[in-house]
Amino acid sequence: MVESDGASRVARRPRILVFSTNNISDPGIDLAGSQHLHYSPAVSTITVPCSSGIQPTWVAYALEHGFDGVFLAIDGDECAYLPDCNQRSSRVAARAQEMVKEKGIEAQRIRMSAICSVCSEAFVKHMEEFSAVLGELGPTGERVP
């Protein structure tokens, strides 16, 4: 973790880790690139096959090690693997929120939304809103030993 003083805390762009999915949300995030839309370069993405397979422990790990927020770009109704993917992914997010709360990290640092394979603009909007919320909260690293 890089230390930051009070002044830069206000100005630093929040680091966001996005979990996306091979077949649905990652193509949507790729599309933002093909359309040359812009979002903060402090956003990075890890892709997995299905959002129901994201481990709550990974989310907690990211927040404990220096990410300021984690966004789950879930499959939604379009998941080709599981008809109840939405509920399962919500369960992942809820469990991750419980896990981090116990460690004194705000639950708002974990967000979830379905991102479809053409949802580029929605994704960019989510990143803008989430960055703003995380900017208010300040860096996670400061609160965790």
Partner: peptide, 17 residues
């Protein structure tokens, strides 16, 4: 798609990412 094209406005940020 997930770096140079979305951060064409920020070379330092894009490179770091």
């Amino acid at each position: 798609e997930q770096c140079s094209w979305v951060h064409s406005d920020d070379r330092a940020g894009a490179t770091a990412k």
